[in-house]
Design a protein around this nucleic acid. Structure first.
Length: 279
DNA sequence: ATGTCGCTTTGAAAGCGA
């Protein structure tokens, strides 16, 4: 099984690139972030023509997450319990929820999240405490799931908008006083690791960025950031056989500012265990 | 060079978010 995560920065602007890559890279399941459209605007046809079924969670021109799968797509869950909102309070006093998280079950029994973690904007912006709260409530949900599914295969993948290590940005000096590298953000990320969720890509792909800003020739200068991650449970980690960061997808016409991150899995199917050997 | 992109409201250009 080959799964991937990709912040596509508008699926409508890039659907051809995405479906072409899915087929070329032989990907079974793709978690997308920043689809930047409402559910009704999502271009289903190109995915179906390529053999993928799609589940989307898009509320407006901002954010939005989705899955495409050619190995099944079940138990779709939007948002997560306790997820904070952001913006202008609604009549009932609550804050509007943004489309930043969804989970699905694929293949035999692999639980996957597509996550678009809030950006944070600046350290003194209300978006920053929102980001930290959002991550903490998400970690609560992960912790509960891990407690309830010992040995289960879970991956939380997406655009985490955090550079966990100093080498995950091209120059730490350019990030003084900025989001993505602050200690509270890194601490929030480490909480997931403390729960037993590990970055399954880094051991196999030790270096490389996943995002380069469109501005200031960041890609030609290779001034990027590593902020897209696949965090897997122990049961998921055991199945990983390979990983890749698809840097070439930042090249050419109308690329996203992020590139796909790919993980290969070899899962023992319970069916295989029960099946008698016939040869 | 604040070396960009995508979406929206608007009806060409500006604001917003990243």
């Amino acid at each position: 099984m080959r799964v991937a995560t990709w912040n596509v920065n508008s699926i409508r602007a890039r659907v051809g690139r995405v479906t072409d890559w899915l087929q070329r890279a032989d990907v079974d399941v793709l978690a997308m972030q920043e689809i930047k459209c409402k559910d009704a605007q999502f271009p289903h046809e190109p995915f179906e023509a390529a053999g993928y079924e799609v589940a989307t969670h898009g509320l407006s021109q901002w954010n939005g997450v989705a899955f495409a799968s050619r190995i099944g797509l079940a138990d779709v869950e939007l948002d997560f319990p306790g997820m904070p909102g952001f913006g202008k309070p609604l009549p009932d006093g609550s804050l509007p929820l943004e489309a930043r998280a969804m989970a699905v079950t694929v293949g035999d029994d692999v639980r996957l999240w597509s996550l678009y973690v809030p950006n944070g904007r600046e350290l003194d912006n209300p978006h920053y405490p929102y980001k930290l709260e959002w991550l903490d409530r998400l970690a609560d949900v992960a912790q509960r799931w891990l407690g309830d599914h010992e040995g289960g295969a879970l991956a939380m993948m997406g655009d985490w908008n955090i550079a966990p290590l100093d080498e995950d940005v091209w120059d730490l000096r350019a990030f003084e006083g900025a989001t993505h590298v602050s200690e509270p953000e890194r601490e929030a990320f480490r909480r997931f690791e403390g729960l037993g969720l590990a970055d399954v890509v880094r051991p196999l792909v030790p270096t490389g960025y996943t995002y380069w800003d469109y501005k200031q020739l960041r890609f030609p200068r290779n001034e990027g950031m590593r902020i897209d991650f696949v965090l897997g449970s122990p049961g998921f980690q055991d199945a990983v056989t390979g990983a890749a960061i698809e840097r070439d997808e930042r090249k050419g016409d109308a690329p996203s500012d992020h590139v796909p991150v790919v993980v290969d899995l070899e899962l023992d199917s319970p069916l295989d265990d029960d099946r008698p050997m016939i040869f």
